[in-house]
Design a protein around this nucleic acid. Structure first.
Length: 807
RNA sequence: GCCGGAGUGGCGGAAUGGUAGACGCGCGCGACUCAAAAUCGCGUAUCGCAAGGUGUGGAGGUUCAAGUCCUCUCUCCGGCACCA
């Protein structure tokens, strides 16, 4: 028998599949479809990492199985190729990002092919390809048309090191997610997408996704951060303004408001507008404003401080005069930047009131409040309001809001999406400005608006994109059409192009749609292709995208639904969230730790089949698992054994293997559906061990075994399939069927428990009745020993499972 | 602080409320070999010579029966965070 030369075999079949276009997407739309998608990668200079291998292999196993089952499978990939790393590489090495990106893409594609991934490479999409980003720009124009894309001048997050504005989603604890710099607030012109208009739907429609993991949906819910409450105007005395607006989610505690607290920013605004305050107030406000930055730098909790603002507010319920304080725990960006403080019902207010000796009043609504002991120390007075006693708190909220002229308000933590970046390597925003600065959208006929060639990719440092320096690109002549769009025309007037580009998340917000119709020059996606292929049936990727890519993509998708491009409300029916692949030391892989496993190296050493098998076998798909360099040998041994066993094939089926055969096919069939690849593989190992013991396997079983093995290790399966002389196409013609009735042994080894403790076993025929089981049971030595002539209190018989005797 | 998720052998990990530790790695012993590697066989939670006892982070509970369900608690990981 020839030796198992995985290198030769894998190369041979990979070449064959490519030449014969084995995995080209089927055109027959009368067949049922399955759209399997792994999140498309950012083609970095480092090449694939093991996390990619896990995601890609898992989705590939699933896609291959579905293809064999006869579905029309769409299993594509592409490149999320705009973004900072390529640009920084360009700045450093003076290589056009186009070139370095192409190099990286080629390397990624090569690695995908040596992993035997069954992508249809005819359908690749590349977000940096003008033929693709034409449609990204088109969507932007549609949003502009609907008022969802707009220019704003509010202070935004600015990363001084990346020299670009950032969205809220790009921050990690107040720092730039990419470089870790402290983010500053900067007032600048920017393009913004009104994602908040979709907040309610983004939240609500999570309920229409039963197959998404609950925790992931919860993460999105938290990010959207809906809170319902009310705004109240508190009249002021001795203040520069007549009243102050506060937001609260607890109108039911309005009676208990014993002071009002405002943010330093709001106080600062009043000061700037002529509030004549004492010197110490000026000082406190200045100090607190300064403090904000420090907090971020040191990341520590700040102690609550405040200063009496020398003015009073009127509690609308009691008409009592209550003091107004400026407090550092009231944030300007949240709510109205001013709060009513109810120390009896809010820990933070309590802490503050306790520190500054402000009275505390309890309001009893429905539930008893649990005031800490110290509430009664010091100046605190306790008043129980009976007005709303016994009323459910929801009703109290409602009634109080109404009665005291509050305005019901729903707030979201989600903020509008800051959509412009002052960088080169991104989609140009298809907008021009006239000489007064007024913005006009490009006419659709002007798309794609391509990136110009530049000498320097580095940001200017002035908050302007490097595109601003390309004067012959920036300055254009043209006319405004009747529709209000801009068209180039040398006889027209002067305009300046928008020089900001889109963030990296733009292209990935709709890429999954394009795979269904990647070369359409007339439409983003044809109606037929959309109707047939969408939505994504299995979406596979990392949960780190929960609050960015997934929210953004869902937002765009809903917008595309509203303008009639797509017919489904949600883009992804499932979200299979991969667990991290850790380094061999159990730590997160990182260059700094030096625990990175390179897929090229392991494929070279073990072959792609073994690597695929291991990445699916090493643990649960959904959990983090360390990559154990030594354990992969077990998978290689398994494949050696598969090779060896191919010499045991007999014409006739082997009766002793019947049960285990059907069990194995059943297990693998079911487990792949729920991404339990590790237990599927384990069952194949068990089966193979039995075959090895028998030194025989029937031809029919061998055929089926190669079929269930094929999704995991396609090369060896192909080779042995060919050797065995089976005529069908392994990849498209058939998935073996099993007979459930044959997945049980004819005899069952029944455990005997005495009072729940295992004492022995006995053998009964499968499906024996309770009476038959008892007859055998009473004859066992264990029964004799533990029960003897006594009458047991109870005998519990679980059919085909066990017996438990209570004595 | 709030919201999720997870704690099982030396390791990765299995277990519709029904024989805990499948499968794999590692390890031990044996076979083959001059020898080694590879391969094959047997063993491998733990205490005990054995009978038997104990074991799924900890403490209680429900049940004939709990890794699995309930209550409390500890630890680790992820997310959000003076969000009013």
């Amino acid at each position: 028998m020839k030796p198992y030369d995985f290198k030769k075999i894998e190369q041979h079949w990979q070449k064959q599949w490519e030449e014969q276009q084995t995995y080209k997407t089927g055109e027959d739309t009368s067949k049922e479809k399955v759209f399997v998608l792994g999140m498309f990668p950012y083609p970095s200079g480092e090449g694939l990492h093991t996390g990619h291998v896990k995601i890609f292999t898992a989705s590939d196993i699933y896609a291959r199985k579905k293809r064999m089952e006869g579905y029309n499978v769409l299993f594509p990939t592409g490149w999320d190729a705009f973004g900072l790393p390529a640009e920084q590489f360009a700045i450093k090495n003076k290589i056009h990002p186009r070139i370095s990106t192409d190099n990286n893409v080629n390397n990624f594609r090569r690695q995908m092919k040596i992993l035997s991934l069954s992508y249809d490479f005819n359908r690749e999409v590349d977000t940096t390809d003008p033929a693709y980003y034409k449609w990204t720009q088109w969507i932007f124009l549609k949003m502009y048309e609907k008022g969802l894309a707009f220019e704003s001048y509010d202070p935004i997050n600015w990363c001084p090191s990346c020299e670009t504005g950032l969205a809220n989603e790009d921050l990690e604890a107040g720092k730039c997610e990419r470089c870790g710099s402290i983010v500053e607030k900067k007032k600048m012109r920017q393009w913004t997408l009104r994602i908040t208009d979709y907040a309610e739907r983004l939240l609500h429609d999570l309920d229409t996704l039963p197959k998404w993991p609950e925790w992931l949906k919860e993460l999105e819910r938290n990010w959207i951060g809906k809170s319902e409450g009310a705004e109240f105007d508190f009249e002021l005395e001795g203040a520069p303004v007549k009243s102050v607006k506060i937001f609260t989610t607890r109108p039911d505690t309005l009676f208990g408001a014993t002071f009002v607290a405002i943010s330093a920013e709001l106080a600062d605004e009043w000061l700037k507008n002529g509030w004549e305050a004492e010197e110490d107030i000026h000082e406190y406000v200045a100090k607190t404003l300064n403090e904000q930055k420090e907090i971020l730098e040191h990341g520590k909790e700040r102690e609550k401080t405040g200063i009496f603002a020398d003015m009073y507010a009127i509690n609308p319920t009691t008409k009592e005069k209550i003091p107004v304080w400026i407090a550092n725990y009231v944030l300007s960006g949240v709510g109205t930047g001013a709060i009513m403080a109810v120390p009896a019902h809010d820990e933070r207010d309590f802490e503050f009131a306790f520190k500054y000796n402000i009275p505390i009043k309890e309001v009893i609504v429905s539930e008893k409040s649990t005031l800490p002991e110290k509430a009664f120390v010091g100046e605190g007075t306790l008043i129980n309001s009976e007005t709303f006693d016994g009323m459910k708190s929801e009703e109290a909220k409602h009634r109080i809001t109404e009665h005291f002229k509050g305005k019901p308000v729903t707030r979201y933590k989600l903020q509008d999406w800051v959509f412009s970046r002052q960088r080169y390597w991104g989609e140009p925003i298809p907008i021009v400005h006239d000489e007064e600065g007024k913005a006009y959208p490009l006419d659709v006929s002007e798309l794609p608006l391509t990136l110009p060639e530049v000498e320097h990719y580095a940001p200017s440092g002035t908050g302007e994109s490097p595109l601003a320096t390309i004067t012959d690109w920036v300055n254009v002549r043209g006319i405004i059409t009747e529709k209000g769009t801009f068209k180039q025309d040398n006889n027209g007037t002067n305009f300046r192009r928008e020089t900001n580009t889109m963030p990296q998340w733009a292209g990935s917000s709709w890429y999954y749609l394009r795979f269904a119709d990647p070369n359409n020059t007339k439409e983003l996606i044809s109606k037929e292709a959309e109707k047939y292929w969408q939505p994504v049936d299995r979406y596979v990727g990392g949960a780190e995208h929960a609050t960015r890519h997934l929210i953004y993509a869902r937002f765009w998708h809903k917008f595309l639904y509203d303008i009639g491009i797509v017919s489904q409300m949600e883009p992804f029916l499932t979200m299979e969230s991969v667990g991290l692949v850790l380094g061999p030391d159990g730590q997160k892989m990182s260059k700094r730790r030096g625990n990175i496993v390179n897929p090229d190296d392991v494929v070279k050493e073990w072959g792609s089949d073994a690597v695929r098998l291991y990445s699916a076998f090493m643990g649960s798909f959904y959990d983090a698992t360390p990559w154990n360099k030594d354990a992969i040998v077990g998978c290689a041994r398994f494949l050696e054994k598969v090779w060896k066993v191919s010499g045991y094939v007999k014409e006739e089926s082997i009766p002793s293997l019947e049960t285990i055969f059907h069990k194995t096919v059943k297990k693998v069939t079911e487990d792949i559906e729920v991404f339990k690849f590790n237990t599927a593989i384990s069952s194949m190992m068990i089966f193979l061990n039995s075959v090895d013991e028998e030194k025989a396997i029937g031809k029919a079983e061998w055929k089926a075994f190669l079929q269930i093995l094929a999704p995991f290790t396609p090369s060896i399966a192909e080779e042995l399939w060919k050797d065995a002389g089976f005529s069908e196409n392994l990849h498209t013609e058939g998935w073996p069927v099993y007979d459930s009735a044959k997945t049980f042994e004819s005899e069952i080894t029944m455990p005997i428990q005495i009072n729940g403790k295992l004492r022995g076993t006995f053998i009964v025929p499968f499906d024996s009745s309770d009476e038959e089981v008892k007859t055998s049971l009473f004859k066992t030595l264990e029964y004799e020993k533990y029960v003897g002539k006594n009458e047991p209190k109870k005998v519990i018989i679980v059919k085909n499972r066990l017996v438990n005797i209570v004595i």
